[in-house]
Design a protein around this nucleic acid. Structure first.
Length: 424
RNA sequence: GUGAGCGUAGCCGAACGGUUAAGGCACCUGACUGUGACUCAGGGGAAUGGGGGUUCAAAUCCCCUCGCUCACCCCA
């Protein structure tokens, strides 16, 4: 056992039947995203490290201690993407998309990498479904995005009643800077009560103190000044309009003034969707995102308003109640040849069925008809084609309906028609 | 990075420190020799994650190590 080659910690194999659940989620997500006129973008796993440092933020946990960063053979520092927005923005800029279309809607789907301590719903290679919208400054798209997410999760089978949609606004960077100063002052006055992490964050990232779960810290944070009160009229109106749009679309939400994002590029509206289900453990945030109106600009492009979300596929899967087996595709036909001569014929017959798109298995081993049918049953095949010397000589086969338990002789020429009829 | 729990065949899962380490699922074979699911009868498969120690004796106790899980943290 110990000499078996292990897999890298936090990076798992996904196989049948579990992989069927992945297919289900991925297909549903694609369908919803395409309905909302998004197009897929595929970016590389590897990016130059500065992309993430400059976008996600140098002082963030993700960049500071979770990135898979290494020196490439030519000496440059590269990192495996810890999230999808920065690469998408890089691609957007590389293509000069703002010159090609005023509004760009992109989605992606794939693995992300963060070196964290693995636990339920948190892996080192995890998978995100995400989308980005570029070019829309108004609040209606913010609401549309959130509404789409609720709809998408609904398609997965996660009901709105099991979700908590939390929204907040971070305002404009200038507003936030002013607020940060007020906040720092406030927390400095109460520094003695704060936990160690929070004390450290007063200077580095005071907003994150709101995230602390220390009771004493929470108490202090509860009476801290709120960002919303420091915002200018335009920011307040934007946020109010987002709420109004959500209400019109009948999307339930709560305003969480303490909701903060861990990535630096966010501005304005931010949101998080949490599953109120037991089996997610501590990682019950299945989806999060928001605006990043200054990111394109800060990376050297024009000021393009943008927003997006990331959804954790593993967490979605944890929230699904359907068993993996129920998503498994069913075998349509099992071809059971008896003897060498029959197999030669059967192989060609199976090939024909397969080319016709019928999910078919054929027994390649020399095993008894009994065990072949046993396997056919195991594979949940709907039909079995039995062929031996008797059938070959008579130019016919036996087609057995494994659900009904009935069987009939079918002339060679009518096989395909009979199969199609039996399968409907 | 911090803390806690767990680790017995492919999977689930028993075994007061003491006979050849239960059982179930799965797998294979057979029940008048070319017919599945149900049933019945057999069969193969583990020296109990690895290493060390205590003991006449350890899966059971102690230490180390590896792995997994959960929580903190972080976030999707």
């Amino acid at each position: 056992m110990s000499e078996l080659p292990p897999n890298v910690k936090g990076m798992n194999d996904i196989l049948s039947p579990e992989v069927s659940r992945w297919h289900f989620v991925e297909e549903k997500a694609r369908m919803v995203l395409e309905s909302f006129a998004y197009r897929e973008v595929r970016t590389p796993i590897l990016e130059y490290t500065p992309l993430f440092v400059r976008s996600v933020g140098e002082a963030t946990e993700v960049v500071e201690k979770q990135m898979y960063t290494f020196t490439d053979r030519d000496g440059t520092s590269v990192s495996m993407r810890p999230e999808g927005t920065a690469p998408a923005v890089r691609a957007y800029m590389a293509q000069g998309m703002w010159n090609k279309e005023p509004v760009t809607r992109w989605y992606y789907l794939g693995p992300m990498f963060r070196h964290e301590r693995a636990q339920r719903g948190r892996l080192r290679q995890f998978h995100q479904i995400g989308a980005e919208v570029f070019g829309l400054p108004g609040p209606s798209i913010d609401a549309e995005l959130v509404a789409m997410l609720v709809a998408m999760l609904g398609d997965f089978g996660i009901k709105p009643i099991d979700l908590e949609v939390a929204i907040n606004t971070l305002g404009e960077p200038e507003e936030r800077i002013a607020y940060r100063e007020r906040l720092k002052e406030y927390f400095r006055e109460h520094v003695a009560v704060l936990d160690e992490d929070s004390q450290r964050r007063i200077d580095t990232n005071p907003l994150r103190i709101f995230d602390s779960k220390e009771p004493a810290t929470q108490k202090v944070a509860a009476s801290a000044p709120l960002l919303i009160d420091s915002l200018g009229e335009p920011s307040k109106k934007h946020f109010a309009d987002v709420q109004a749009h959500l209400k019109t679309m009948a999307v339930d939400f709560v305003i969480d003034p303490r909701l903060v994002r861990g990535l630096d590029y966010y501005t304005g509206t931010i949101f998080e969707l949490k599953a109120k289900l037991g089996n997610l453990g501590a990682q019950n945030t299945i989806c999060g995102g928001g605006r990043y109106d200054r990111l394109v600009e800060s990376l050297g492009g024009p000021r393009i308003p943008a927003l997006g979300f990331g959804m954790g596929v593993e967490r979605v899967l944890l929230a699904l109640t359907e068993s993996a087996e129920s998503f498994e595709p069913r075998l349509a036909v099992f071809v059971a040849p008896i003897g060498e001569r029959a197999r030669d014929w059967a192989l060609a017959a199976a090939h024909k069925l397969r080319l016709g798109g019928i999910r078919t298995e054929i027994e390649h081993r020399d095993s008894s008809l009994k065990s072949q049918l046993k396997r056919a049953d195991k594979l949940r095949a709907r039909l079995a084609i039995i062929v031996g010397d008797t059938e070959l000589d008579a130019k016919k086969v036996v087609i057995k309906d494994l659900t009904a338990g009935t069987q009939q002789d079918v002339p060679e020429a009518d096989i395909e028609a009979a199969i199609h009829k039996a399968l409907d």
